[in-house]
Design a protein around this nucleic acid. Structure first.
Lengths: 180, 180
DNA sequence: GGTATCATGTAAATGGTTACATGATTAC
DNA sequence: GTAATCATGTAACCATTTACATGATACC
């Protein structure tokens, strides 16, 4: 055995909403879900093939214009079962969230270290950008707070914003503490 | 090319503080740094061998009791250079922080979905435990707020606590919003 | 004497990234 | 016509996990 194929479940979840192409799946990781998982098309296409072989999904060919083909994948009953099993299986442990900036910080022992301030300010910019982006997404996708369709999507967006807010706050506090 | 070997730099950073054994390195991922990166001994021992071959580290044999040997690794000038280069190289992008619970949540569309509440409460327990653990660590490792030696270590612990605090807050709010 | 921990390795399998590769369609 | 985007794939390489394997030492 080796690692658990989480990507498979993400793909099942996305296809379960509506039939999609590999290209559309790839795009999904640029936004939304990309906050919490990443995947390139080179990982997605072969996995789709394998999942079809395992009868979790099927595809139909579509043609755009003269020749350009695309495969639109739909979920099978087996696929739906596997998705449901995954959703019902409780998450019993938290995995480390990998953060290269934090790792570097760990090795800065001295409060006076000249690298500290530039590291912190660069990082603050990145997280502020991300926070702004997420807030734009929220405004765009959930303009009406009273009528929320995709509730889970709303929740994770809210969580991501809160997380970035907290990250910025910590960085800001640390910077002002250093420069005081 | 493929993935960037971040573990190498973590190991260099740890060995740079003081000479350590593979066993001690493995233990380091159970606490402290384990918040932000994980590694098993099966990954560490071969990498140590490779790093020694690349002349980033060297080792000396120590013997405990009659026979039990251990290799205590020290950093070389090349290793120190490589560590410094890594630390100086700015972190210009944020990577997705993988969170399986959040992914599952994404696929729950309906606010009335019966799976929602148990998922949230289980997750709250996990994050509360983690927060408590981190607060214990803080009290233990940094009892005197005025005299902080390992400043980076202090900062990342502070950050981890703040992050878990925020996670718990979001879960608590979401739960009370659901049950209202 | 037994159990937990110290201590170091290897093997097999899979996950994931980067690069290579090709061609069609759309919009300017 | 040309650049951006749509669309799908493969190859090579490395990271990471899980399992297999062995023996010593410390503590009760």
């Amino acid at each position: 055995m080796a690692q658990r194929n989480t990507l498979k479940y993400i793909i099942l979840g996305l296809i379960n909403e509506r039939p999609v192409t590999g290209y559309e799946l790839t795009k999904a990781f640029d936004s939304d879900i990309g906050e919490f998982w990443l995947a390139q098309h080179s990982q997605i296409y072969p996995l789709l093939k394998r999942m079809e072989h395992d009868q979790l999904i099927t595809h139909q060919l579509e043609v755009t214009g003269e020749k350009l083909e695309r495969k639109r994948y739909a979920i099978t009953p087996d696929g739906q079962q596997e998705l449901a099993d995954w959703l019902n299986e409780p998450v019993t442990k938290l995995n480390a969230n990998k953060d290269e900036f934090i790792l570097k910080l760990y090795f800065i022992r001295d409060r006076q270290d000249g690298r500290l301030l530039p590291m912190l300010t660069t990082q603050l910019q990145l997280h502020q950008q991300k926070r702004n982006h997420l807030q734009d997404q929220m405004a765009q996708k959930f303009p009406d707070a009273a009528h929320i369709e995709a509730y889970g999507h709303f929740l994770i967006l809210q969580h991501a914003i809160s997380r970035e807010q907290d990250y910025c706050q910590w960085l800001t506090n640390t910077i002002s503490n250093l420069t005081a």
